[in-house]
Design a protein around this nucleic acid. Structure first.
Length: 603
DNA sequence: CGGACAAGCTGA
DNA sequence: CAGCTTGTCCGG
């Protein structure tokens, strides 16, 4: 490591006897404390705020992070020396940001420090020899590219703003203009998008480090940094802006607690650094809309970047045809590349006996059974399985009332007269080779290009019992739009939506290429029901949730409401994050397992 | 989190 | 009462 560890402003050591003491957060789950350690003189130059170290704690050697330098240890404790310097970690600014994030998502600081730390130890960081000035922008701009660049530059004049670009716009057109003003942190929704962007930026003359491999280069400074949500925590010492691509995408939120969101981390980080934060999305979240102005393209340009959407009203379709409507059948028979999407795995999610007509039930708990595969019935509530036999008349044949991907695959294969591949989250990633594929929404991530994307039962998405259902439904249409291309692009395909709710705002938004169609309704709906962003939520669950929520209720904090329990889960609701997070920080947690998820998505 | 140590349970 | 499980405490 380079010997730049201590700042010249450190207080002078008056005597040789007084040794440097640093505060270390150990990487130990369930231990929300920091401990002080002596810095052995041999390690002096390598230790600074953010350094990853090994410490001996309670007889164990564990990883930890230096979070404060030259601290005054509490009286009466015997300090141990740091055992080892593992390598480089987050910058002091990011270390400070983890403290804020620990409050904001009510979680342990160590998880957030881990997010800001490279996967593999980085013992040394390359010396920067790169020219600071990036190359001038290339002349390659399409008609939409030009418009996008203008809007992006306008957006960068605000501390936080949103740029609304339709699904078919290449993120490169958004990111590149900013990269020519200095190093930029780019947070992409997936590693694939990040990697693709990295390659093309580099080709365009932009020095860029792609995470996670490029972490040492990013730490060295002077380059743009591209990565998935972890990029929100990536070092970029001289960042001129932070960009979050597909800001609406749920992939930006960590699923495990603390459930930090890359968008919110990016916004706070940019605010602290005094640089602009640009949020980019075809359908900006309502949260983003509250953070700053939303910049849009010309209406005609925006619309041309949304796909052609064919809405099939299932109320006037032949009911005997089931989920394979006339338009879909025609597309499959025409030899087009078709992706069929139904978010139901297995053969069927609801079956009825052909003899007595009764719905298949669980013999143990009475819940409706599903048919995960041929010859098995399974109860999703208690896990009991049995062969395909009716409990009442003992027949062994059932009608498949709510068909799943596996059964539809068979039916489509007959229809297509050629192999049809099934794609779900649990199927092999490689195979998407057949002309016709059927799958859950995972298929939209695995197939790069198709002529038709068909949603066989879109109402399942629109009517899902979650407050974000309508928004999530539109995100599927955005993804489909990318697979078939925008209506304005050559060779554009079509999105087929089978529904009994053809007037639904999520569908109109896609049909018209105008996401505000949904926003306006959704904002009002959520305000009426007290859901985000009108109010903010935290979900509390786990064996110790009851004790903790009792304490929260006892504390009777102003503006804080406790809802539940439902399924062993409580919801804490407050008007703002300040109120919510202060409440969670103020009430001491009981021992035992407790999950606190701030801003839960699945409610 | 996980080790240390104490208190509680069981069986010869 | 050894030998084991279960609970509580605490870390620099």
């Amino acid at each position: 490591m380079t010997p730049t560890g201590r700042s010249p402003q450190s207080p002078p050591l008056d005597t040789a006897a007084r040794q440097r003491v640093v505060r270390v957060v150990p990487d130990v789950r369930g231990l929300a404390r920091a401990f002080d350690y002596l810095v052995p003189p041999a390690l002096d130059a390598d230790v600074r705020v953010g350094t990853v170290v090994r410490i001996v704690l309670h007889g164990r050697r564990v990883r930890g992070w230096v979070v404060a330098d030259d601290v005054e240890p509490p009286p009466g404790v015997t300090l141990r020396p740091l055992a080892k310097v593992t390598g480089w970690g987050p910058t002091p600014e990011e270390v400070a940001l983890t403290e804020w994030a620990a409050w904001r998502w009510a979680g342990p600081r160590s998880s957030l420090l881990a997010a800001a730390t490279p996967e593999r130890a980085v013992p040394s960081v390359p010396v920067t020899t790169r020219p600071r000035s990036p190359s001038p922008p290339t002349a390659a701009t399409t008609t939409t590219g030009l418009a996008v660049a203008d809007v992006v530059r306008a957006a960068a004049a605000h501390p936080v703003s949103t740029v609304r670009v339709p699904p078919a716009v290449d993120p490169l057109a958004v990111v590149e203009p900013l990269c020519h003003t200095g190093p930029v942190v780019v947070v992409a929704p997936t590693h694939e998008v990040a990697a693709g962007l990295g390659v093309r930026l580099r080709r365009g003359g932009v020095p860029v480090a792609v995470l996670p491999r490029g972490w040492p280069d990013a730490r060295a400074g002077g380059v743009s940094v591209v990565g998935a949500r972890l990029a929100a925590w990536a070092p970029c010492p001289e960042a001129a802006a932070i960009v979050v691509l597909d800001e609406h995408d749920e992939a930006h939120q960590e699923e495990r607690t603390p459930t930090w969101h890359a968008r919110d981390v990016a916004v706070e980080r940019a605010r602290r650094a005094g640089v602009p934060c640009v949020l980019v999305s075809p359908m900006p979240s309502l949260e983003a809309g509250q953070m700053g102005p939303v910049h849009v393209l010309a209406r005609r340009v925006e619309r041309s970047g949304w796909p052609i959407v064919d809405v099939v009203d299932q109320r006037s379709e032949d009911p005997t045809k089931g989920l394979l409507g006339e338009r879909l059948v025609a597309a499959v028979r025409d030899g087009r590349r078709v992706v069929c999407v139904v978010n139901r795995t297995g053969r069927a999610r609801l079956v009825a006996c052909v003899g007595c007509g009764r719905v298949g039930e669980c013999e143990r708990c009475g819940a409706a059974v599903v048919q995960p595969g041929e010859g098995v019935l399974e109860c999703r509530r208690c896990g009991t399985t049995r062969p395909v036999v009716c409990l009442h008349c003992h027949r062994t044949r059932f009608k498949l009332l709510r068909r799943g991907v596996s059964r539809l695959r068979e039916e489509l294969e007959v229809l297509a007269g050629e192999p049809v591949v099934e794609i779900t989250a649990s199927t092999d990633a490689a195979q998407a080779s057949s002309r016709v594929v059927v799958g859950t929404e995972a298929a939209l991530h695995r197939v790069e290009r198709a002529d038709v994307v068909a949603f066989l039962d879109f109402d399942q998405e629109l009517l899902a019992p979650r407050y974000r259902a309508a928004t999530e439904a539109l995100t599927l249409l955005v993804r489909a739009g990318r697979v078939v291309g925008g209506r304005g692009s050559p060779g554009a395909g079509r999105v087929l939506v089978q529904t009994r709710l053809p007037q639904h705002e999520a569908i109109s938004a896609a049909v018209l290429g105008d996401p505000t169609r949904l926003d306006d309704v959704e904002r009002e709906r959520r305000a009426m029901l007290g859901f985000p962003p009108a109010k903010v939520l935290a979900e509390i669950s786990g064996p110790s949730a009851e004790t903790y929520t009792e304490r929260l209720a006892e504390a009777a904090l102003d503006g804080v409401e406790l809802l539940g329990p439902a399924d062993g889960r409580w919801l804490l609701r407050a008007p703002t994050h300040t109120v919510l997070c202060d409440a969670l920080a103020a009430v001491p947690r009981p021992p035992g397992r407790l999950r606190v998820a701030v801003d839960p998505l699945r409610v």
